[in-house]
């Protein structure tokens, strides 16, 4: 006879709790009263209890005697086998070990591209800027030197050998912290 469960709302958890001895005293008494007048629940309760009894007859099983020795060998193997460098990149803990390979490859690839672009940016932009500054500084320096040379030639042309008055002008420039 196939029993129908739909006749007793909430019967599932009550019957399971009753069979397993997990109902409160009040609930147990209430369910026993219900069963006294309900053939369906009585049949279900009896059959499920017998099913549980059958399940508990399953024999116990034991792992093989050499379980620990084989486990030790497998653990030693795990210890000896380092993961490749690209697998050791930081990944969030929710990335399961089995999926790390699938996540690590794109992470390393993207990181490589970003690093390459960054290197190009860093190595190119500052070089242009520095060169311009250096060129400008060099131009200024050349102009100053040229001006001083002209002054020197102009002064020398009107002075006799050994006259140091022109040199005094230059020395005073040095004292002000010029680029000499």
């Amino acid at each position: 006879m196939e029993t129908k469960l739909i006749t007793c709302p909430n019967a599932e958890q009550t019957i399971v709790g009753y069979i397993d001895g997990n109902l409160s005293t009040d609930d147990r008494i209430s369910f026993e009263r219900h069963m006294a007048s309900c053939q369906v629940c009585r049949t279900i309760e009896r059959e499920l209890r017998m099913t549980q009894t059958l399940l508990r007859t399953l024999p116990s099983v034991e792992p093989r005697q050499d379980f620990e020795a084989r486990l030790a060998a497998r653990i030693a193997d795990v210890k000896l086998k380092p993961s490749p460098w690209w697998m050791r990149v930081w990944l969030p803990s929710y990335v399961k070990p089995a999926r790390r390979r699938h996540v690590a490859i794109p992470v390393v690839a993207v990181a490589s591209v970003v690093a390459s672009l960054g290197f190009v940016y860093v190595s190119r932009v500052p070089t242009v800027k520095t060169g311009a500054v250096q060129t400008a500084a060099a131009s200024d320096e050349t102009a100053v030197l040229s001006e001083l040379a002209n002054q020197h030639h102009a002064a020398s042309a009107t002075q006799s050998l050994g006259d140091t008055s022109g040199v005094v002008v230059v020395a005073s420039d040095m004292a002000t912290g010029g680029s000499w």
Binding site: L5, E12, Q13, I15, V16, G17, D20, E47, L48, M50, T51, Q52, L54, L55
Partner: peptide, 20 residues
């Protein structure tokens, strides 16, 4: 948990009915 245990026992009961 209770629902799963109940449904499992019902299915097992149906499979093992000759013994019940």
């Amino acid at each position: 948990v209770k629902s799963r245990i109940f449904n499992a026992r019902v299915a097992l009961r149906d499979s093992l009915r000759p013994y019940l």
